[in-house]
Amino acid sequence: MLISNKTYDILKWIAQILLPAFGTLYAALAPMWGLPYGDQVVGTILAVDTFLGALLGISSKKYNAATGSEEN
């Protein structure tokens, strides 16, 4: 199953920018403001981000193999 370039780019932005930034923000603010479940929330964000990154890496590899192109 192939995804569109736009969908890939959006998911890549989420994995590379949004999730790490939000995880860092929550980790920094949770102890200062007494936000609940700091470790659990950040751990969950990290797990989702890692899984998304792995799926995008697999997708990119399959796309490059199918088109005969290589991306460094």
Rank of each mutant, 00 (worst) to 15 (best):
M1D: 15
K6T: 10
K6P: 11
I10D: 00
I10Q: 01
I10G: 03
I10R: 03
I10P: 01
K12E: 03
I14D: 00
A15C: 08
Q16T: 11
Q16P: 12
I17N: 09
L18F: 07
L19A: 07
P20A: 06
A21M: 06
A21T: 10
A21N: 12
A21K: 07
F22A: 12
F22S: 04
F22R: 12
G23E: 04
T24Y: 11
Y26A: 01
A27I: 10
A27D: 12
A28R: 14
L29F: 15
L29V: 05
A30E: 00
A30G: 03
P31T: 04
P31E: 00
M32F: 06
M32Y: 13
M32D: 09
W33R: 15
W33H: 05
L35V: 02
L35Y: 05
P36N: 15
P36C: 13
G38K: 08
V41I: 04
V41Y: 01
G43C: 00
G43T: 02
T44A: 13
T44C: 04
T44N: 11
I45E: 08
L46F: 07
L46I: 09
L46R: 15
A47R: 12
A47T: 08
A47Y: 06
V48S: 06
V48G: 07
D49L: 12
D49G: 12
D49V: 10
T50G: 13
T50N: 09
F51E: 10
F51C: 13
L52T: 01
L52H: 05
L52F: 08
G53N: 05
A54I: 07
L55E: 05
L55F: 13
L56S: 00
G57L: 01
I58M: 12
I58P: 08
S59N: 03
S59G: 08
S60N: 07
K61I: 15
N64P: 05
N64G: 05
A65R: 15
A66C: 05
T67D: 00
S69Q: 09
S69D: 11
E71N: 10
E71W: 14
